[in-house]
Amino acid sequence: MSFINYASREINCKIVYYGPGLCGKTTNLQFIYDKTANDAKGKMISLATETERTLFFDFLPLALGEIRGFKTRFHLYTVPGQVFYDASRKLILKGVDGVVFVADSQEERFDANIESLENLRDNLEEQGFDLDKIPFVIQFNKRDLPNATPVEELSKLLNERSVPELEACATTGEGVFETLKAIAKLVLTDLKKGG
């Protein structure tokens, strides 16, 4: 969970990007990294295979600015999306403050989205979190592709809780910062409630 440091006047929060393999989690982080000023970001770490598939996680530390004299820092993580990396995925969820579910809008990935969302629910539960209570947003990625499922349909199936949902195209960056902002807002609001 969040780490509040009164000595250095900092709040640290952990956000995890979750979703099926090749849905664009790493691309989201890469875009944020590319478009953020040097003084606001740390090094982006990608533990990936030789074919650029995430093996363990990507990590990107961001400094967003100050709230009431406290520096807010967000640590963004992605999980490996491929089904067989489940053991690693569970570990990344430790101490998470907010989750972004990146859904792949392509028709043929419909089932993969549902499977990944169910997997998220199970893995969160194992770490003592409830997907229905934790700060959570959904990003419908790859909206630019011709075989994209209509948003209404995706929303009906993936967004039962009616959390904020955003359309995106992570390769061009459309919707990427909007997603980050949406989850950051929920996390900070949760902190305010003393969560």
Binding site: M1, F3, I4, A7, S8, Q127, G128, L191
Partner: peptide, 10 residues
């Protein structure tokens, strides 16, 4: 506990 925020004081 695993759920509690870590708070650090001076």
């Amino acid at each position: 506990g695993p759920q509690s925020s870590l708070v650090m004081y001076d």
